[in-house]
Design a protein around this nucleic acid. Structure first.
Lengths: 189, 189, 189, 189
DNA sequence: AATGAATGAGAATTCATTCAT
DNA sequence: TATGAATGAATTCTCATTCAT
């Protein structure tokens, strides 16, 4: 990755997270990246390309990170815990989700397919863990895709809430609560 | 509610859900509503006002619906089940969430506060149910706000996934799975 | 003159004086006149017609007033004094000039000729007095048109200054100063 | 002064003089200046800014010119003659006044104060000359502000008349007549 | 006759993109 | 290679005018 490209990404993600893609101008990104407006177009064909590359890039990082953390583990339960951990940690550090969440459910048709594929990839990855757990008789026989989606939803919306109200989501029992609810449920038996 | 206002809302929500607010032009909305461009401005001060009014209107409906369904119940567990039911049902019928979700985590400062308040209202309502359950010794002693957020996340992201992949989210065990996971957890004891 | 037409004129002149013709909407005029927007179009073909009719109407009044005051007089010097008087008085009462001045030097080609004609009429009227004075050996042999224009300029711009700075232009020696300067000049012999 | 700014000013002043500021579109100005519409906005924040900058710029030039011509003189009478000269000459060359007059008595609040200040500056400058003359016993004891306003009125309205009827205001005894009337009055003693 | 809801042409302004330097 | 001045398509919003009631 060209170091200047990285700088652009960094500048863009910050702006996008704050104001959304449409309201962020190429000018702003260029300025925040400390380069000329025209230079952006050396690295990206156009704004759309920049946005999509950024999403893809960030998604891959988070996905790789989660996969790397999981790979050493055997137990599906531990894996799920680790997914929650890794996802929360990554977002805490990179502040990416507010923007990702918004764009992931994107409209621009050009993105749509690619983003859906990404989402499928990530959801599918979690789904696999869950199916594994079901096969091993450790997880209930729910629809694995539903279960995977539910998990991502719990995590992402919690992150967004924290960002919205500027809570720190690494403290405040969030990790523990999500793990407990997801694995054991709210009800006391 | 003025019938033309309703028509505008209907047209707008469809466009917004498809392309997002920023990419939808007033022109388009007018055309979809079968009225002239200028007429929009008889009913809404400007685009921002239209968007916000729409969000507020839809939010109130869904909130009232959920509250109305819950009010007759005593048991917090049943209440939670009902929340899941009502929320899913409403969105199934009105197709609102894909748009709402996007705007709810909005940037435009003018919206932000009002929307945060709405979210707080809804989250707070669920949080109350959970606290009630905790007091009655039926729910675990998790942070009630975390639990409420987690529930909304599970539901909303599932709805979005279904919309994205055009799945029907009233069949497919979705309601049962969410209820089961949320209340009893994934793990088989 | 239809009484409603008069009401419209009154409303229009007030708005026009405050904000100029272009920035005043038909809506505003209608509201200020206490009638419906559409009703305006029963009395005037369009906005341009309204503006022009108003100018013409007001101009005629001021012109008739000045002429009426002058007609009884013989001495050109007294006539000039009376012109200054009448013009100042009329504007004091009717607050018309700020608007008139602006529109009189108008652009809209449709007005231009008619307005130029009005101005010619008024200027010509004063010019006649001056020529009379010259013939009678009472006024210097200046170009009578220049002298007439100069007089109107002195009066109108003074009125405008007063309106601008909200001075009362009936007190403050204004009448005396203009008469003195115009007739006898600034210099002490 | 950026050469392109100057070009814009030139184009704008011509259009404004012909059609007034409100009826002149940014499009037109851009076209007349031989540049793209968007380019205007590189040099001026918005239309208001363009108008005001133009007024300010032109006013300063005329004011400086008049001051420069006066500074070498001692006699208040000669100074007044020079003011008339300089003002007429400047307007003859730059054709600014028809536009200036219209805007000077403007409504847009943003302009108002600044323009009033300009007018006060110019009027005040002439007022000082007159007070000087009064102190030296050369001018009559009129209200100096009234006298200053009267002078500006004589000159400006005469210029406007000439522009309106397309007369050349450097010939035609205009200068001589204004000087004579203002200093010595119309009446033959 | 009077109204005001509806309209759409037209204006200001923004911003992705190009291109000469 | 890097820049930012220049551009004009596209967007929001206004308002004179029309017309059904």
């Amino acid at each position: 990755m060209h170091p200047k490209k990285e700088k652009i990404f960094e500048a863009a993600i910050e702006k996008f997270a704050k104001k959304g893609t449409t309201s962020t101008t190429m000018q702003e990104i260029a300025k925040a990246a400390g380069i000329g407006k025209g230079t952006l177009y050396r690295y990206f064909e156009n704004k759309e390309d920049l946005i999509f590359s950024l999403i893809e890039f960030r998604f891959n990082i988070i996905f790789e990170k989660v996969k790397a953390d999981i790979i050493k583990l055997d137990d599906p339960i531990q894996k799920i815990e680790k997914v929650i951990d890794a996802h929360l940690n990554f977002c805490a550090i990179h502040g990416v989700n507010k923007f990702l969440i918004r764009e992931v459910w994107g409209y621009k048709s050009k993105f749509k397919n690619a983003i859906q594929e990404m989402m499928s990839l990530y959801t599918g990855f979690i789904k696999d863990i869950i199916e594994e757990g079901i096969e091993q008789g450790k997880f209930k026989e729910v629809n694995a895709l539903n279960a995977a989606t539910a998990l991502i939803g719990m995590i992402d919306i919690t992150i967004i809430r924290c960002m919205m109200f500027e809570e720190d989501f690494l403290t405040n029992k969030i990790r523990e609560d999500i793990v407990e609810i997801y694995l054991n449920g709210m009800v006391i038996d």
